[in-house]
Design a protein around this nucleic acid. Structure first.
Length: 225
DNA sequence: ACCCAGGGTCATA
DNA sequence: TATGACCATGGG
């Protein structure tokens, strides 16, 4: 698999089928830009329903802003975000991110930064990895950066379009080459991938009524899971 | 009871 | 570069 995610037409075809099957996803589900920052950390290896509970608690405590969270007692923050899991770790990560926002001068200042520099600085924050950084860059700042997650690897390796264990940036740039710098498509595509993974690919045998059946070696009986 | 969720860090080889 | 332990709640 020297050149993953090729030909580009195939990558676009997957998008078309997912979009036809599920419609627009409207990602990221958030009221404000700062909520995307917080949600991106809280959703790390956690169900989104649990993240909503945590966001509700922060809202109810009037603590949904960077300065407040940065200055909060860690144990109190942990108690507020408890339902999203890993609450001690995530409290620390959230404070690191909020400290970064405050020191930068606020989200409006960050919004003027160049995409690559912004991405690099977010990655340098404790607890912010590739996916979390790119969630923020794509959904909060509307920059053309494609988000790779475990579902993306699973679905596209199953389709035979990548090995699945490539380095993050190799896959990310593969999608960006195939699709061009298209922010609305990137935003929808990632949401569709997550939705599809939950809607279809987890129930086995998955391929009988899967919208990607005709593109899938497994769905056409060419190999076995 | 078991499995996993819209990951990331850290230690180790 | 690449594994593995660890973190923790709630829903199926």
């Amino acid at each position: 698999m020297t050149a993953p995610l090729r030909p580009a037409r195939r990558v676009r075809s997957v998008f078309d089928r997912l979009y036809t099957a599920y419609g627009p996803q409207g990602w990221w589900p958030a009221d404000t830009r700062f909520e995307i920052f917080v949600g991106a950390v809280l959703t790390q290896n956690a169900a989104w329903t649990n993240v909503e509970y945590a966001l509700d608690h922060l809202r109810a405590a009037d603590a949904l802003d960077a300065a407040t969270i940065a200055a909060m007692e860690p144990d109190r923050l942990g108690a507020l975000i408890r339902p999203s899991g890993y609450y001690n770790i995530k409290a620390r990560r959230l404070q690191a991110l909020c400290r970064f926002v405050v020191e930068a001068g606020g989200i409006e200042v960050l919004a003027r930064r160049e995409t690559d520099a912004l991405r690099a600085d977010l990655l340098a924050v404790h607890g912010i990895g590739h996916e979390t950084a790119d969630d923020i860059v794509l959904y909060a700042f509307h920059r053309p950066v494609f988000v790779i997650d475990a579902y993306t690897r699973r679905i596209f390796s199953r389709l035979g379009m990548c090995a699945g264990h490539e380095p993050y940036d190799e896959l990310r740039m593969g999608f960006e080459r195939a699709l061009g710098a298209d922010v609305p498509v990137f935003q929808e595509y990632h949401g569709l991938i997550v939705n599809h993974a939950k809607a279809a690919c987890r129930k086995q045998p998955a391929c009988a009524d899967c919208c990607l059946r005709r593109m899938c070696p497994v769905g056409r009986g060419e190999s076995s899971p």
